[in-house]
Design a protein around this nucleic acid. Structure first.
Lengths: 225, 225
DNA sequence: AGGAAAACTTGCGTGCGCGCAAGTTTGCGT
DNA sequence: ACGCAAACTTGCGCGCACGCAAGTTTTCCT
């Protein structure tokens, strides 16, 4: 048998690579590359302004080629916003699952989603401020809502025990759509500030507002099980 | 007053340019350009295969420059699928509005959406067949679901008479998301046919299936008005 | 009728997204 | 331990998306 492999230390491991057992070196290197790219993207964007960062620059800072950059991200903006949103996808499913079965599905989903968008420290706030400065970054940030759809569908399907997989998929798609609407409202420039983007109200409040109309659908699906 | 302008004949007019009163020459030329581009895109894709059509080719066939092409469409695929879906956006809102107020909102919305995806003749079928042959075209086709969101939000807001504009927006976003799921299911390659894309069941049936879980949300919003 | 503003078209240049293929690294099975 | 397959990295080239600015066309107002 080959030499025993040890679970790596924090040097390589980040929360996204959920190392619940030993993963291979290849997978660990992939996660490390992805993290290096998004951290380099955000750091350079903050240092120079997002308009002055090129894919070549990010790739070089992360120690890979531009071609490899495009294996991981399909645009400059995706890497920058990934620095903020990277772990949200894996956490949201776990957060739904963490609610006891007696909690209504709608409440579990809303609380799980809101939890992902609560204040996450000064560095995340600085990154979000940067993201609001440029239309392409705002749009990429809004698009990250789509990433919660798959883990939500899995978590909802488990809660429903539903033989019809489409129900969970559609409800998750609806929730992701409502999150996108909240993010769109949150980042849009307001006329009051001369076009300057000032986030309009706390994001958790906006999320609760946009998710509320879907609660009857979530609860109805739960009652049918 | 300037010379009287006449509503133009069918030479310029298509259903997308809803000519309910006289529109300017500039607007008419824009619509004509857009139509010329999408028709050229589809025709060339059918003649040569989608892989053998370039933006330069489409632009030349439509009589404009490649730069102008990109003023109208952001990718080759968008023009091709627009040839099939162009008028859907304006029609879906009108179809919801066409249902009497005593018809439940959910039913009005479902029927309006399904109507947009019923069989629309041999040429549309040929175009859809072409679209299923290539991943990038399938993805662009699935993305067109997003275009029904704005007109749906308007139609739902009118039905609800809702002072809260977010409710209509979120419900419309959820419906568009459910439509996207149906399109994804419809175009995805099935293992049974060796990866060949064979649309799985009639699209109207898939749409009803994916829209059904959202009916409680639509009806609950209507009861609250 | 004429002038100004708005909107559109287009050429140019830049940055970049991606397919392909060759080389390298890792994982698996014997 | 070794060989093979899978997965990854990377260079190259092509197509293209977009910002900018100049020219043209259309609209609006006097």
């Amino acid at each position: 048998m080959r030499a025993r492999k040890f679970a790596f230390t924090h040097l390589f491991c980040d929360a996204e690579a959920v190392v619940t057992r030993r993963t291979g070196l290849r997978e660990q290197k992939k996660q490390a590359t992805r993290q290096a790219l998004r951290e380099a993207a955000l750091r350079l964007a903050m240092e120079r302004g997002p308009d002055n960062v090129r894919v070549d620059d990010i790739a070089e800072a992360a120690g890979v080629s531009p071609r490899t950059y495009n294996n991981y991200f399909s645009s400059r903006e995706q890497a920058i916003v990934a620095a903020v949103t990277a772990e949200r996808q894996s956490r949201v499913g776990a957060a739904v699952a963490a609610h006891p079965a007696h909690v209504p599905l709608a409440e579990a989903v809303v609380e799980a989603v809101v939890e992902q968008y609560t204040d996450q420290g000064e560095r995340a706030r600085d990154a979000l401020l940067l993201i609001t400065t440029q239309p392409a970054l705002r749009e990429a940030f809004v698009d990250t809502a789509a990433a919660i759809e798959d883990p939500l569908a899995t978590a909802i399907a488990q809660r429903l025990g539903d033989p019809d997989p489409h129900t969970a998929r559609v409800l998750a798609a609806g929730v992701a759509a409502a999150v996108r609407v909240a993010l769109q409202l949150w980042v849009r420039p307001t006329a009051a500030e001369g076009g300057l983007v000032v986030p309009s109200g706390p994001l958790p409040d906006l999320l609760r507002t946009t998710l509320a109309p879907l609660a009857p659908a979530l609860d109805a699906a739960e009652r049918r099980r």
